[in-house]
Design a protein around this nucleic acid. Structure first.
Length: 109
DNA sequence: GGATTGACGGGAG
DNA sequence: ACTCCCGCCAATC
């Protein structure tokens, strides 16, 4: 087996570091995180990564939403409510449809 | 080990 | 605004 040019944990680490670089009060999309981590077009990888986070992870996963400015979690789920609660506590506003105005709260690297 | 799934995204109609 | 479709590819079945 020829080792991959880039170890997958290397990618994972870069992605996690990028997620962690999103400041409080701002949100970033999955695609944006992938792009900044040097993996353009790999938004789904970010989703898969966050999905596998252990409960109680110190990582600020709640600042990641989809490109539409909406949470990709079931709003009724525990994680979904946690995300909303955390974002609101950071000053992020949601409109009546649960959408965030990215012009205002979007992360601009 | 092929097929399906999915915390995505962009494009087309 | 909404639906459908396709590319992406790790994880899961």
């Amino acid at each position: 087996m020829v080792p991959r040019p880039q170890g997958n944990d290397q990618k994972r680490t870069r992605l996690l570091a990028t997620v962690d670089s999103v400041p409080p009060g701002r949100v970033a999309s999955y695609g944006q995180i992938a792009l900044e981590a040097g993996l353009p077009g790999r938004a789904r990888l970010v989703g898969a990564l966050l999905r596998g986070l252990p409960a109680g992870s110190p990582l600020a996963w709640h600042r990641i939403v989809n490109a539409q400015g909406k949470s990709s979690l079931d709003p009724r789920s525990s994680a979904g409510r946690t995300q909303r609660r955390r974002l609101r506590s950071e000053g992020v506003e949601f409109d009546s449809k649960g959408r965030i105005d990215l012009k205002r709260h979007g992360w601009r690297p």
